[in-house]
Design a protein around this nucleic acid. Structure first.
Lengths: 242, 242
DNA sequence: TAGCTTCTTGTCACAGTGACATGAAGAGAT
DNA sequence: ATCTCTTCATGTCACTGTGACAAGAAGCTA
């Protein structure tokens, strides 16, 4: 019960980034090795505190993206996942973190930024199989980020953000397969993707060298909402929600 | 660039609640009249600061739900919308607010809680038509909450949370119509709702008095994920996303 | 009993989908 | 050249889910 003498507690605000990309047909997340306590030496999501009291939260996320991952935030999809603020999530005290999701196209090895002791792409499979542990509650933040990406792939054109332009339909299919963790029929995928108006648009009849028949090249269309949606294959009968 | 002497800024953390319900077939939101500056006398979402540094964010939301709306949080759907922390959103200083969405079945007039000068249900239409202004950035928080509710209605059984049990299919339809802001064909709605296994289950052949033929009564099923989903009628061709 | 209201059950055409066959266009081997 | 292998591209078919209706069923009121 607040009274005249009561003052709200002040806390520290941080941002954490879930940066996903595709490397050799597998979903990877950018992790840094912590250079300071707590959790020194362990893997964690890139992130950090607000620089000063006037810095916006999104601005802080964009700054960390640049500092820790050498990525240009202006080009990337950046979306808030939510606030993570359980008491005790950080041994240093009450720290609330706002997490953001970013999607990056395939990139060369990350260069460690200023702060990060070492940055590297890790397959997400290693984390949620439990083989690789993350600092703080980052495992759950990552899980939420992946889940968000999964559902967004259905109704938004987010998948193209994983691809460098121009891309082939097969490459786009690999994005869906990697993120969803399923196999898709190339023929049905081809039909559906082409059927969504404004999703991908063919760039003049170009082609690229592989083994078999050359593939047509596409670039992102202007449409960001997919209709009809690309529905994820039935993950059996879940009864989970919320 | 943080150095050895740099200290992260500390901020104040608040929670805000978007509590939606249905009253006379229209979507309403619970608002309080602010008793103190800033924005004294204006309407705002219920909410407040963390009580102490050890209080969880969700716990704070549940406490405010009880204090300001006299609602029992344990019965309600409560879901985080996200963090709102633009510098300047609160003239008192840097305050970051974590917003939650709650859905309540039709209720009698709200009783003003301890803190709130006055609490009342307002039609959401009055806010997003601009006729009623809200304090802080609460207009946008509300808009996000409504949008979240809209999309969740498609794939989750959230709609039943608006209904007192037992309910009729027509009542459930009114929920969808009010939240989506559309009219639905009762016959198709009937077929679809019944076709989702575990969504609603008939409570013994009871009935209720209205004008025409008595309606069968139902209660919530155990299934929280709707398959197939109840898809929202085409809102024309939007090209918005994110 | 007729008329009105609301709930319930059908019907029909069509879009979207999964499963699968088949054709087209290149590279490499013989 | 021709064959084979690979990958890309197009087509077919049955089935589900959907929107747009018609028509029947069960109560109330006059």
């Amino acid at each position: 019960m607040p009274d005249a003498f009561w003052q709200p507690p002040s806390i520290l605000l941080a941002v954490d980034l879930v940066i996903l990309t595709l490397r050799s047909s597998k979903l990877h997340v950018l992790l840094v090795e912590r250079g300071i306590e707590p959790y020194k030496g362990e893997h964690a999501l890139p992130g950090g505190f607000l620089n000063n009291v006037d810095e916006g939260i999104l601005a802080a996320a964009q700054r960390e993206l640049r500092e820790e991952a050498n990525l240009d935030a202006s080009q990337l999809h950046l979306e808030q996942l939510g606030a993570y603020g359980d008491p005790g999530r950080d041994p240093r005290g009450r720290i609330v973190s706002v997490a953001y999701l970013a999607i990056a196209p395939g990139l060369p090895e990350p260069e460690a930024g200023a702060d990060a002791a070492g940055a590297s792409w890790k397959p997400v499979e290693e984390i949620d199989s439990g083989r690789l542990e993350l600092a703080f509650d980052h495992r759950w933040i990552l899980a939420d980020g992946i889940e968000r990406a999964r559902t967004k792939l259905e109704r938004s054109s987010l998948a193209t953000a994983f691809c460098n332009e121009p891309f082939t339909i097969a490459e786009l299919q690999q994005v869906y397969e990697a993120v969803w963790g399923v196999e898709l029929d190339p023929r049905n995928f081809y039909r559906k993707v082409q059927g969504v108006p404004g999703f991908i648009i063919p760039v003049g009849a170009e082609r690229r060298t592989t083994k078999g028949r050359p593939a047509r090249l596409f670039r992102r269309g202007q449409q960001t909402v997919l209709h009809p949606p690309l529905s994820r294959p039935n993950p059996l009968t879940t009864s989970e929600a919320n």
